[in-house]
Amino acid sequence: MTAVPSTAPAVVAVCLKWTPSPFDGGPLGPDEGDDRFAGVSPADRAALELALQLSDAIGASVTAIAAGPSAADRVLRDAVAAGATRAVRLDMAAGSDSRDVAFELAQVVADACVVLCGDYSLDRGSGAVPAFVAHHRRCAQALGLVSVDVTASASSVAGAPDGELTIHAVRRLDGGRREVLAVPTPCVLSVEGSVASLRRAPLRRALAARSAPVEVIATPPAHHHGAPAIVTPYRPRARTMPAPAGEDVLGRLRALTDAGTSGGRGETVELAPREAAARIVDTLRGWGYLD
């Protein structure tokens, strides 16, 4: 076990999005507003498991945070049962604006070296919260991770001259490619549900967690803290496109989807972040997605 050499003990934070109904409910319809069926997404559970593994490896404590009404306390107590050391609930209505949620989260996770989130929520949220949290904390972010190497991350502390923790992870790119990342801390990470499966809480912890304290933080009404206004995925206007080139149906499908081609229409460029961002915006504009 490698300790992070700092005066205060290190904190790994995990944000759990409490969702009133994690299931679509089938023919009976969603079990909306029914606490029995409320919960968190598989991606959030994976984030919690990673937080626990990481904290074990670096000797940190885990703070679990959820935004929601008091019914959300249950998912926090479940997190405590699994091993979280502190539970915080931001008292907000379900479905609050992502920017508000992110602003409030950023306050609570201000001392965390790593903030973990699931990469998408069950109620088809925008997935923007982790990015907004990173924005508020002015720290690094790596979103949509498909794996995190806990051992390599933990041993990075020993190797680093300043004892800084570096997260080693892999991110999914388009076209089936992967990007291997070394993310400096503090950072915000969002992970896919497949990165880890949440451990069962030990019986005694489950018993004790029934009465675990949950810190409740009252939040002011909506205020949209200084973040860009676009929070839902942009949907381009319909345009007439020429039929894709191709001899037969299969060929046209191939052309349309890039399936089976190695490069497709995408291209890989190595640029500094600022130029890369400009290039992406230009390309999107060229494709007609931005005006």
Partner: peptide
Amino acid sequence: RTDRPDGDL
């Protein structure tokens, strides 16, 4: 005995 870790009561 239960199926949780540390599950004997």
